[in-house]
Nucleic acid binder design. Structure first.
Length: 823
RNA sequence: GCCGGUGUGAUGGAAUUGGUAGACAUACCGGACUUAAAAUCCGGAGAGGGAAACCUCGUGCCAGUUCGAGUCUGGCCACCGGCACCA
């Protein structure tokens, strides 16, 4: 028998047998409970990075564990294959994006297979293939039919040198990343999808999913549902009105100005006659399109010279144009209450506008000083507010809202921070938007003409999309009129593809519909695993798509992902390891050197999934060393010829040391089962397995029952580790004389009677400080335990000259004696 | 700026429900084996004081709740993620 651990020999052999025996082929088996375990699919950037290895190892460990627990497990894999990096690579390498992408997929598929992940490869998909994206195009045409998709102008980054639209990522310090030209902003017509129609449902259904609270909170805040009041001011000297939205109607008497967005019609109108205003608006139009930049930008504004009339006081209030007011939120205009809103306060301070306090804090809070900052708490009462004086937030809200409704100038409304989803991209390597521009207007492409296929033989040069110059793509005929038409050259946001792939895996073989009935066998995804960086956008879009699919009767559930596990990032040098930053560590080198099992073991041992993990090369060797120790333990055990298995081990017949080892065995089974199956804390599961291994190595077996215990320990170790390091486990399993695939074996169960202890160690504290330990019988009564605690010498010496005031006893754990000096 | 997280030995982390802080590893130090090295095996180790027994301090910082706080509360600091065209 081969005595050395040789992963480079055994791993490929075992992988070959999984492939030839179709071990991970999945079918819809109604005799077992199903378990759909999905990891976020990768962008095929070239090669796997550590984040992928971490993500997919977690999924594989859970999938293998659930299989051994008797579930019918689906674990698929595919490729999020459209996107910008392929175009960048195409420019650099003079290769079409498709060629680059398919080569990357081939390489990364080999890497995934080399890591031993148990995927059902028959279901593999790549989003850049017409077989996949035709259904996305089909779905989009249904959305157009239902009025869920519409056209609207949106601002984009325009590189005047490369004559192309840039992604935010491609704008560096306000300049195009390739040309270095100052980036301009352009307004262009774009397709939007009405995700806001589903805002309430997206918010409310968060309560029905088993997701980390932090992710649900982030999504709730992102949707940002607020109750407020929408009302309009009379504009002095005109017949027109100005509509605003506020969540703080209780502060209405503190308005000292109103502010409108630079894109607001009032601003546009004012600019016609005032060149300063026109210049200000032009400046605003060149501001960043990134919200974080806008929030940090210095507040700027300009007075319009126009006024509105306060609905209750009749005062004249100036209208300002301000760069911090967003046209997309509410009506693009706000009532400004600088006393009680920090942004309004800063703006008023800067431009010398009055600040009027209308809320007084209840308890003379020392932070209440309106000359220094706004008071934004809702805990005070109204002052200086005439008819609305001396009211709490709730009372004032209601009174003001009623007064506004009585005047018929507004009403209570719900508003959302969430905006509709702009899905058009002026890029080549994406799913073509199935629209034709005809002389009768825009028309969706008919079902029978789908898919609109993206030509793959193109030259990408960094300027405008190559689709625009392709007459074989652009020129078409309107099937209704027979007249000339042009195809839309925009493609979809790649979040479109990743919003429904989870469902397509579940009906991977459906050729004549987007989804078939198998989708409803597998869905929802029982466990979805991926990076925390997707907590909002991807997960929100996918949830939205699922509801659209449901409303089209394609699925029956409300939510796509029942449980979510968000893994922390793999960091290198303190920041996210990513292809865009180019700071990746290549897992392939580690696989070549140590084998897949070592890499898998190390990744799972280094940190629990949800924590971010700073990569370091230290420790991989330690994981490898452990596998060698295990390999040696098992091969020596088998070599000694004393591998004895018994179904009827008599606990009473065991020596003390064998009894202890046997108890530890079952404690380990309990811990590992809980850690893998419930907590997803693989690092502590591995630590427990290591402890048991160390105990097994130290154990000196002499009798037949000793050998039986050791044999059971060794066999169980191999099984417990098999989800994490499946190759060495399978190899050792065979060495131990077992036939067949280890994954067909049942997960071990805990023998409860093996866990029973006769004695337990209790901690004794005096005034909360550890002073001693006592060994007591598990069934000892409190009186006995207390006597032993007080008599324990290390404890007793702290009791001299003291009066015992209190004794806290936590059974089987701790005793705390609270004492004070005698006087 | 806003939203969400994280912070424990030299390092990664453990402590699951408020009850022994530092499991299990890595790096390090010492020993065994070896002509030697590697590999392997055995042992040590939070910091400070002490000859030792043992004592004191210690989970980013400052307060608080509690018999008892890494864990709960309030306030700060640092770092990480997201902010709608990176995926």
């Amino acid at each position: 028998m081969e005595r050395d651990y040789q992963p480079q020999i055994i791993e490929p052999e075992i992988q070959k047998s999984w492939e030839s025996e179709k071990t991970f082929k999945t079918t819809e088996d109604h005799n077992k409970p199903k378990f759909y375990c999905l990891c976020m699919f990768p962008y095929p950037s070239g090669k796997l990075h550590m984040g992928h290895v971490r993500n997919y190892t977690i999924g594989d460990v859970i999938s293998r564990f659930m299989t051994m627990k008797g579930y019918n497990v689906l674990q698929p894999m595919g490729w999020d294959a459209f996107g910008m990096p392929a175009e960048n690579a195409a420019i650099k390498n003079q290769l079409p994006p498709a060629t680059w992408t398919y080569e990357n997929i081939d390489h990364m598929r080999r890497q995934l297979k080399r890591l031993g992940f148990g995927y059902d490869w028959d279901r593999e998909l790549a989003t850049c293939t017409p077989d996949y994206y035709r259904w996305e195009q089909w779905l989009f045409t249904r959305m157009v039919d239902k009025g869920l998709a519409y056209r609207k102008k949106a601002r984009v980054n325009w590189d005047p040198v490369d004559r192309t639209v840039l992604a935010n990522e491609q704008v560096v310090d306000g300049r195009g990343w390739r040309s270095g030209a100052l980036v301009e902003k352009r307004e262009i017509d774009q397709w939007f999808i009405r995700i806001t129609d589903y805002a309430d449902e997206l918010l409310d259904d968060l309560n029905s999913v088993d997701w980390p609270e932090q992710v649900k909170t982030m999504q709730r805040n992102w949707i940002g549902r607020s109750q407020g009041v929408e009302f309009s001011f009379e504009r002095q000297g005109t017949q027109e009105r100005l509509e605003v939205y506020t969540t703080r109607p209780d502060t209405i008497m503190g308005i000292t100005y109103v502010a409108v967005a630079a894109q607001h019609p009032i601003a546009t109108k004012a600019a016609e006659t005032n060149p300063d205003i026109a210049a200000f608006i032009r400046d605003c139009a060149q501001m960043s399109v990134i919200e974080a930049d806008l929030a940090k930008a210095p507040k700027k504004g300009i007075a319009t010279g126009e006024y509105v009339i306060h609905p209750f006081s009749g005062e004249e209030i100036p209208i300002w144009i301000a760069n911090f007011v967003l046209m997309d939120y509410g009506s693009g205009a706000v009532m400004a209450v600088p006393g009680h809103d920090q942004r309004d306060w800063e703006f008023a301070t800067q431009y010398g506008l009055p600040i009027k306090p209308v809320i007084k804090s209840y308890d003379d809070d020392p932070d209440y000083d309106i000359s220094k900052q706004a008071w934004c708490e809702k805990t005070g009462v109204t002052i200086n507010s005439g008819q609305f004086d001396n009211l709490t937030f709730e009372q004032a809200f209601e009174a003001v809202a009623n007064a506004i409704e009585d005047q018929r100038i507004g009403r209570v409304t719900t508003n959302y921070r969430l905006r509709d989803w702009g899905v058009g991209r002026q890029r080549y390597w994406g799913c073509p938007i199935p629209i034709i521009h005809t002389d009768e207007g825009l028309k969706i492409v008919r079902d029978e003409d789908l898919p609109v296929t993206l030509p793959e033989d193109v030259v990408v040069d960094g300027s405008e999309s190559p689709l625009i110059g392709r007459s074989d793509f652009v020129d078409t005929v309107d099937p209704e009129t027979g007249r000339q038409a042009k195809r839309e050259t925009d493609t979809f946001d790649t979040f479109m593809e990743s919003s429904w792939y989870y469902a397509r895996f579940a009906s991977a073989f459906s050729n004549d519909a987007m989804l078939d009935q198998n989708a409803n066998y597998w869905l929802p995804v029982d466990l979805y695993i991926g990076g925390i960086e997707h907590a909002i956008l991807h997960l929100l879009y996918a949830r939205f798509f699922h509801k659209v699919l449901r409303d089209l009767d394609l699925v029956v559930t409300n939510e796509p992902f029942k449980k979510l596990l968000t893994q922390g990032m793999v960091l290198k040098d303190g920041s996210k390891m990513s292809k865009s930053k180019g700071n990746t560590v290549d897992p392939q080198e580690l696989i070549d050197r140590y084998g897949a099992d070592t890499v898998r073991l190390f990744m799972m041992f280094a940190a629990p999934p949800e924590l971010s993990l700073e990569w370091s090369d230290d420790g991989v060797a330690g994981a490898h060393r452990f596998l060698k120790r295990l390999h040696t333990l098992v091969t020596e055990h088998v070599g000694q010829g004393n591998h004895l298995t018994s179904d009827t081990l008599e606990l009473d017949a065991l020596s003390d040391s064998a009894r202890d080892l046997y108890r530890k065995l079952h404690e380990t089974v309990a811990k590992v089962s809980d850690d893998i199956g419930r907590r997803y804390h693989f690092n502590t599961a591995i630590a427990a397995v290591m402890e048991l291994t160390n105990s097994a190595i130290k154990f000196n077996a002499t009798t037949e029952s000793d050998w039986q215990v050791l044999s059971e320990v060794i066999e169980t170790l191999v099984i417990l580790l098999s989800p994490i390091t499946p190759h060495i486990a399978q190899h050792l399993w065979s060495q131990l004389g077992n036939d067949g695939s280890l994954i067909d074996t049942h997960w071990p169960t805990v023998r409860e009677d093996a866990l029973i202890r006769d004695t337990v160690t209790l901690i004794v504290q005096v005034n909360g400080k550890l002073r001693g330990r006592i060994q007591v019988a598990t069934d000892a009564d409190d009186e006995t335990v207390m006597r032993m605690a007080r008599e324990e010498p290390s404890v007793a010496k702290f009791l001299g000259g003291m009066i015992e005031k209190k004794a806290i006893v936590i059974p089987q754990k701790i005793i705390n004696l609270v004492v004070a000096p005698k006087r």
